[in-house]
């Protein structure tokens, strides 16, 4: 008798547990056929649909800005929001005008590349007060915004460390290094040189024999590097601050047939023709890549977060530094660099 009662109790209990596992109410015949509607999906899509995202890079004519946009457009198409592109074509004044007009049009978010720390700061303040969210890519602003991109100082440190490893103590080399900077007033160049000097200050065996600006110009970089090579045939390393310019420095070394003795390190967004192809043909011995694919992914993620949460302007700010990778001829794989096809 007791045994029967016990069995009945256990049976009831397990039934209750089963029912509670199935969201308490008994499973209706309808749900069994059609499944359950996830209540979070519709609001997610709802929060994206018909929104407007502005995009103001330095210029639409170079690998980084094209890659970012291509990545952003994939998600925009998927989620049904619009991207408005303004192309300042390297001109800060045009950029200020474009930003000004965009802010008046009141998009939900503006993804931008600051020309420097200051130029857009006032505009960012005005836009933020009007409720627009700003995502800065690769160059920060004096006025806080959400930041995604390269940490230039760390980039400089990584390049300098590479050169120290190759040319420093116990390397049996001269330790002579040339630095080819970009435009001296640009934040990217200024932060990078800081990173470089920080590392070199701990390595007195490294001797900087030339520290010049080539103005982001490949021809100028080539001229400087040629002259430095001529003056210091035992040069061990060249540090460059951007692939578009450093190709001149690398060409000068290659032309002198010294690519086995002089280590040229460059950095950039990892576009195949600018990076992997140049590592393979010996223009660079190393390339610090802040992969544009990853940055585009980060931009997309932040867009989704901001559109869903719509935070108050002063709620929080954050930076998402890009994880850089030092590429060399020996560690590149087919997927190490990107082409526009990656975004199709």
């Amino acid at each position: 008798m007791i045994n029967f009662k016990k069995a009945a109790a256990i049976g009831l209990l397990s039934m209750a547990t089963f029912m509670s596992l199935n969201s308490i109410k008994p499973v209706s015949a309808e749900t069994e056929v059609e499944g359950i509607n996830d209540p979070t999906i519709a609001p997610y899509f709802e929060s994206m649909k018909g929104k407007k995202i502005g995009y103001v890079p330095f210029s639409m004519s170079y690998d980084l800005s094209k890659g970012w946009l291509a990545g952003m457009q994939i998600q925009a198409k998927e989620l049904g929001y619009e991207i408005i592109v303004r192309d300042p074509n390297w001109n800060t004044d045009v950029g200020v005008q474009a930003m000004d007009q965009l802010i008046n049009a009141k998009p939900d978010i503006i993804v931008l590349q600051n020309p420097d720390l200051q130029s857009y700061a006032k505009l960012l303040k005005r836009g933020t007060e009007a409720g627009i969210k700003f995502i800065s890519v690769n160059i920060k602003s004096a006025y806080p915004s959400y930041y995604i991109g390269e940490e230039w100082q760390l980039n400089g440190m990584a390049e300098a460390q590479y050169i120290v490893d190759k040319c420093g103590k116990d390397s049996g080399r001269s330790g002579k290094v040339a630095i080819v900077q970009g435009i001296l007033t640009s934040a990217a160049s200024a932060y990078q040189i800081r990173g470089v000097t920080e590392v070199f200050s701990k390595h007195p065996e490294i001797q900087v024999v030339s520290n010049q600006s080539a103005n982001w110009d490949a021809g100028k970089a080539q001229e400087i590097t040629r002259t430095v090579l001529q003056q210091h045939p035992d040069l061990c390393g060249v540090i460059g601050f951007w692939d578009g310019m450093d190709i001149g420095a690398g060409s000068a070394v290659k032309e002198a047939n010294m690519q086995d003795k002089v280590f040229v390190v460059s950095s950039g967004g990892g576009y195949k023709e600018a990076a992997c192809d140049r590592l393979e043909d010996g223009t660079y011995s190393a390339y610090f890549s802040y992969d544009v694919r990853g940055q585009a992914q980060d931009i997309n993620t932040v867009i989704r977060i901001l559109l869903q949460t719509n935070p108050a302007p002063d709620a929080f700010k954050f930076t998402l530094p890009t994880r850089g990778v030092m590429l060399t001829k020996d560690n590149i794989k087919p997927g190490s660099c990107w082409t526009m096809d990656d975004f199709k």
Binding site: W216, D217, A218, G219, Q222, G244, I247, G248, E255, T283
Partner: peptide
Amino acid sequence: TAVNSMNTRI
């Protein structure tokens, strides 16, 4: 051909 590229920003 000297710098292995043509940068039109010149």
